[in-house]
Design a protein around this nucleic acid. Structure first.
Lengths: 209, 209
DNA sequence: ACCTGAACACCGTTCAAGT
DNA sequence: ACCTGAACACCGTTCAAGT
């Protein structure tokens, strides 16, 4: 069918193409993006304010869909699944991560996700202070794990020099799930700590009823 | 005294100046760096291979000095102090972090630091697998905490919309040490987990002697 | 409304040439 | 050896002009 000569461009299409380019080439560039869309560079600026907004659009695309808030689900399960979904969405697009962490979050999508965990923890009965602490810890965890995935900050490949790290690497069982395993351990530690905190606060607040 | 007309430039001076510019302005640029050093842009390329090498030099400057390995110090203390030193060195130059995480570590300085923790954990008697896991977790923690510091990934300032997160923020006790506190809690959790792991492995390996 | 061409002020890097 | 000037191939952004 003949392509319609209107609606060539849209924010959604721009974001999607930019993410595809990042996945494929490790980065995206405004001129390359325009070329790929078969459009002039200046055309893009009628739909987005600039490069930063495109990056924020990418963040929006990468943010997992809001999981429905089931009141029956125990908070431990909800938090764990939330963190896993977050990590997985990062893991699916590792090349985009360095660019995203350099920029403050404004995608409403993503902000809503943080509101969701806060609500889960609030329902569970955690204090405001503990909720803030919990979200900070979960945020740190997902971010750190994602970065480890995107650009391993230590060279995990054994280096030439003899060292304790080389020895450990040589001896350790190989497996690409090193990062994933560490993530799971830390996540369990955090959830466990929150449960402990919850128990303490519950005792302090009042008598059982 | 009259300045000598040789040795105007050096790698050390280039790295130091670039780090200063990053601290001050949030970024450094090769032309601006040259201008600040009172030198032509192309002069820099006689001392460093390119921008990436300057960034790696910055990483080297930011890496804390190797703490002497005191065999008397309990491993829990050594690991805790190592992580704190790491985090503090990041915290001192938050603006540099986004640029650094986008690039694989090659500063020999920094690599030696990771070897050091590995050695501490090896002496403590931890298995190779657990050492790798421990370093991954510590790395994730320091990285995530540093990024939270550099560019808060959630807007911790209360937003307009009513949400569980806003409620928690309004109610929580204010304090700039939110990030630091979360770091300490997570660090303690990790060290605790390592101690537990160590106990398990020690029992498995052999009888007490 | 949507797209374009041309220009702007940058950026990192190179290289022949000077002393 | 060390520094330079000029050029190169880029980059993100703007803006008057077209339809």
């Amino acid at each position: 069918m003949p392509r319609p000569h209107q609606a060539i461009l849209s924010r959604e299409l721009i974001f999607k193409t930019a993410l595809e380019m990042t996945d494929r080439a490790g980065r995206f560039t405004v001129p390359e993006l325009a070329q790929r869309l078969g459009v002039s560079v200046s055309s893009l600026y009628h739909h987005v304010q600039g490069r930063a907004e495109i990056l924020e659009g990418i963040r929006g695309l990468m943010t997992p869909a809001l999981t429905s808030l089931d009141a029956d689900t125990p908070w431990e399960v909800a938090v764990t699944e939330w963190a896993r979904a977050y990590r997985d969405s990062f893991a699916a697009h590792p090349a985009a991560i360095p660019a995203l962490v350099a920029q403050t979050v404004s995608a409403p999508n993503t902000l809503a996700q943080y509101d969701l965990v806060a609500e889960v923890l609030e329902r569970a009965g955690l204090s405001a202070n503990s909720i803030i602490m919990a979200i900070t810890m979960l945020d740190t965890l997902c971010l750190g794990a994602a970065l480890d995935l995107a650009a391993p900050s230590v060279i995990w490949e054994p280096r030439g020099v003899e060292s304790a790290l080389s020895r450990a690497l040589a001896e350790a069982s190989p497996g690409a799930d090193r990062t994933r395993h560490a993530f799971e351990v830390q996540l369990a530690l955090i959830v466990g700590e929150l449960a402990r905190q919850l128990a303490i606060e519950h005792v302090q607040v009042g008598s059982p009823n």
